[in-house]
Design a protein around this nucleic acid. Sequence first.
DNA 1: TTGGGTCATGAATCCGGCA
DNA 2: TTGCCGGATTCATGACCCA
Lengths: 337, 337
Amino acid sequence: MREAREVTLGWRGKERIFGAEKPGLSKAMPEPKVAYCTYDGSGELLYGDNLATLRALAAKYGESVTLAYLDPPFLTNRVHHAKKKGKTLDETTELPAFDDRWTDRAAYLEALGERLVAVRELLLPHGSVVIHVDPKTSHYVKVLCDEIFGDDCFASEIVWRYRRWPSKTPNFQRVHDVLLRYRKDARHAPRWNTLYEPLAASTLATWGVNKQRAVYAESGRRARSSTTREATAGVPMGDVWDIGVIAPVARERTGYPSQKPEALLERLLQSLSDPGDLVLDPYAGSGTTLSVAARLGRRFVGIDASEVAIATATRRLSALETPSVPAYGSAVPSPSR
Amino acid sequence: MREAREVTLGWRGKERIFGAEKPGLSKAMPEPKVAYCTYDGSGELLYGDNLATLRALAAKYGESVTLAYLDPPFLTNRVHHAKKKGKTLDETTELPAFDDRWTDRAAYLEALGERLVAVRELLLPHGSVVIHVDPKTSHYVKVLCDEIFGDDCFASEIVWRYRRWPSKTPNFQRVHDVLLRYRKDARHAPRWNTLYEPLAASTLATWGVNKQRAVYAESGRRARSSTTREATAGVPMGDVWDIGVIAPVARERTGYPSQKPEALLERLLQSLSDPGDLVLDPYAGSGTTLSVAARLGRRFVGIDASEVAIATATRRLSALETPSVPAYGSAVPSPSR
DNA sequence: TTGGGTCATGAATCCGGCA
DNA sequence: TTGCCGGATTCATGACCCA
């Protein structure tokens, strides 16, 4: 009775997501190849279809992942290309990096749903998934995820606010992406480290850098607040993050489309995983997640089916392990703004 | 065939939304009462159920609204109270303002969906709807709206980012609401005025306050940009808005729960309506939309079914029209006890 | 008039205590 | 054992007062 009033997404053929073949049973499953492995074996990059690979990982390792970050295509119905600089500036070439064309929204959601179900199998009870989407797809993905993870496991909608060159359109400029976070198990204390942001200007002006504390009158009623001697760490980080897109000339930039800033992944990994934890990225792309994981001492597994992605990520990871080459960015956590 | 693959929300009893009785046919429809009307007749506040009232308005006026702003309850499953200050601080009393309890999510979506269908009937071809929700409900509401308005009429997801006191939670602090904007008709140029934000600090440092212009080499390739003599108006406004919540001691504050800042409504009205246009708010509450509409020279219609809301909004609107009393007269101790 | 210092209190969220 | 209620936590910000 109650069940029948659940609100879910519906389309023809949806059952495919949940009725998926069990891991290891499909004969046609191509064996994923190890494209890169760190010197100490703490991280690897796998070349192959991510669905098949996720199922193979689940069969082999079971629950082992503390944080899974998924940066799937955004249902743009286009092929995205990687830019590669030639010797001269005119010789810049483009190679197809990934294909984001779908017969319809249902096909897109089926593909993503199957992968989310497989990722969930790999999560530890205190683990999280973060799915990176845009404001056109986020709503469908959230409703789908509520069904897969349970709406009581929904933790946060994180808004990544960036700044970019404005376009001339009779509308508010689109300057944000959305990250959905789910927990594996609502009854388990999640892995969590609180990060802090700087205080608001008005707070600094009024209270300075010391902690506030409420003061109560003898009657028990609230009186004025006072400051303490103790310095505050700042305000606990919110769910709206102001992080610049990677500038066209940034050192970090690889030319791979859809590349995300390292600062974004740093925040996620620092708050949702500890050193030594296993981080998973089934849409590894240019390897930002893996690179940040390596720098922050997390173990990692990345998967991608695109040759260009594998080449880009491999190059990036090797550069990290070669001490003579400076690593990207600094390990210093950057406060917002 | 194609139809069957549409992705929509499903639940038992959903057909109610679209199969609603036609306006004017229900005998039991209570006649809405005019609770307040401006001196020149350009704005009014109606006391009654908003669904019945919207249908009555549609029958009477047809398409006439340029901007509809809806601030429905957020599915909190609680009753929300208005605070009323007594003579002494101890005498602060609470009155129930609105009831946000539902049997399930489906019931909530049915109620909202019926109202959205009725609101759509009232929109001019170049009109917009803006629905204010929180990150727990926004996704369901967006999927529902895609069905009602068509996903090609989805215009923006606006993120209202605010600052508030922190809570101790092993999660990112929730510090944003979501506003969904839809157009009535994708083939019609929408009502639109571009607003501007101040330049980012980094831009100011590099470029100063003058307009940038891209410079192209003779080959047609992009060279470095230059500044022009002309001062820039700033960056066209984005879809992430940093606006403070109404401070506990602000004049603007009425004590009504869920009250929204006037700054938020100002941005919406200025960009999505012109002076003289008709603005509709079916969940008028404390009357912020109406008050801002009156100040900005827009015509307006507000509806609410709560006595406390009607009293609060009426007080606020009268204060605006009484020149001897400073605007925001709501902060003045009310004469009634 | 402008500017700095003081005050009040909130669409929060967790946790512990008691039913 | 589970579920509800109240206490504790401690940032943000406009109003006000006074120099």
